Each structure stands twice: as structure tokens, then as C-alpha cells.
Simulated scan of single mutants.
Amino acid sequence: MRLYFKYLSILFRSQMQYRASFWLLTCGQFFSPFVMFAGVYFMFERFGQLRGWSFYEVALCFAVIQMAFSLSECFARGFDAFSGLVAGGDFDRLLVRPRSTALQVLGSKFEFTRFGRLLQSIIVLVWALTNLPVAWNAAKAVTLVMMVASGVLIFTGIYMLAATLCFWTIQGLEVANIFTDGGREMAQYPLNIYQKWVTVFFTFIIPFGCANYLPLLYILDKADGHEVMYMLAPFAGALFLLPCLLVWQIGVRHYRSTGS
């Protein structure tokens, strides 16, 4: 972790060398998600509710997944830009260093301008929570934090799987955006508004539902059955990351240098 924070410090200082550009990009990231949130707002202005969900309940769902996405984009950007390391042969340098390749790739790039998007999500989160009659306790507060952390791990795992494909395809594949950008758009609404196969896929295969929808039912007192199961659902994010790391190790073993 000391090495990871060293990467963090170096890249932050390098990006702050162009402070005007940094703050302009951060402001752009702050305002751009408002377009998506405006779509949610106007939909509820027109229809009032969505399959029994109120505006502020969906706003909470929206804020959690947007926070997870922005944190993942900030701290796991190295995997998203991994194709450049493979195409240029720079991944060879990482292989001869006595540290994990996953850690080195993770620390190769950070997008601190995504804090603008994170700030917007926090504002929406606070707005939603102040307008929801939630009976808060320590368990619900911890569950909310775990929801965000789980979402970060899931997005990071998807980035890692997309990066692993680069060992065979060299260039990154845009199909991965179906599960990153598409997953973000889908998970910002409760899963029960979709068809059953969508709910099953995004609960048991890519567990966005475990990071957002199921624990949200517990927080809003809508859970049926054992509440502990809904509280523990965010741990699926960590379980999802484990096979992603395994696939990454398989990809590393099959890597062939570009020879440049």
C-alpha cells in the first residue's frame, strides 16, 4: 500500500502542474452528470413514480452508483488505459519489477478530475437522504458505505477483465463499455423495473444488484425475509473481484511481448 500511495502522490503532483486545466476538467466532470440526473428528475415530474419507487428513492440509487463509478474511474483508470502499455511494449518493464503487475497497472494512471463527478454524486446523495424517512442506525450506515465500496470493486473488476483481453487483442475493445457505462446507466435505477433475465444477470453474473438494489431494499425497509442477507449482499463485489484477478493472472502468463 505504501507503493500504491507513492504512485498516487506522484501522479497527483504531475497533474497539478497544469492547474487551470485540472480545475476546468474537474468542473466539467461536476456538471456533466447533471444531464443524466435531469433526465431522472423530469421523468418523475411527468409520471410521479416508477414501479412503486419514489423520486428520492431512485435519487439515492442514482447517487450510490455514480459515486462508485467516479471512484473507480479515478483510482482504477490504469486498467482502462492498459492497451497503451501493451501496444507500446511498456508492459515488459512492469514484468521485471519485483511487485505485482496488477498493483503497478492500478497505479499507472489516476484521473483526479473525476472528483468533480464524485462531488455531484455526494450532493445528490445528501439531498435524497434528507428527504427520505429512513430510520438510521449503525447497520444501515455501514451498509450504505459498503454499497459504494462494492460498486467500486465491481467496476474495477470489469476494467480488469477488459484489460486482460488486451493480451490477445492488443487494442482495447469498446464492447467493455457495455458493462461499465451501460452498467452504470442500468444500475442507477432499481433492478425490479427491468425484465427478469436482466435482474438475474446483473445479480448473479455481474452483481450490480448486490451492490445497489438489494441493500437499498434493506435501508428503505422494503426487504422481504432475513435482513442480514440484504446487508451482506455488497460483499458480492469482493467475490466478483477475485475471479477477475485470477483471469488477469492467466492473461499475464499468456502475454507475448510486442518486440518493440
Rank of each mutant, 00 (worst) to 15 (best):
W127M: 00
K196G: 11
I10L: 14
M36H: 12
C61T: 15
A76L: 10
V64T: 10
L118M: 15
T164H: 03
T156A: 13
P190K: 08
L25R: 15
L11T: 08
G78M: 11
M229Q: 07
S32P: 00
A68E: 05
F47P: 02
P133F: 04
M36D: 14
L216A: 03
V152S: 03
G28A: 06
M43L: 12
T199N: 10
L220I: 01
E227N: 06
F30E: 11
L242G: 01
L232H: 04
M229E: 08
K196T: 12
S100Q: 07
T130M: 11
L125R: 09
V124D: 01
L132V: 02
L50W: 11
C61Y: 04
V228P: 00
F167G: 04
F44I: 05
G225N: 07
F235R: 00
Y230H: 08
R51T: 10
Y56N: 01
V35P: 02
L24I: 15
M186I: 02
D80V: 14
G89M: 03
M1H: 04
A162D: 14
W197R: 14
L119I: 15
F91E: 06
F204W: 12
I10K: 12
F30M: 11
E174M: 13
C61N: 13
Y4W: 12
D92W: 07
I178P: 09
A87S: 15
T199S: 12
L119S: 12
F47L: 12
L94V: 13
G209A: 08
T113P: 00
M231C: 09
G225A: 06
M1N: 08
L220W: 08
F22I: 12
Q120I: 10
A68I: 04
D181T: 14
S150C: 05
A236Q: 00
K196R: 15
G84F: 11
L191S: 14
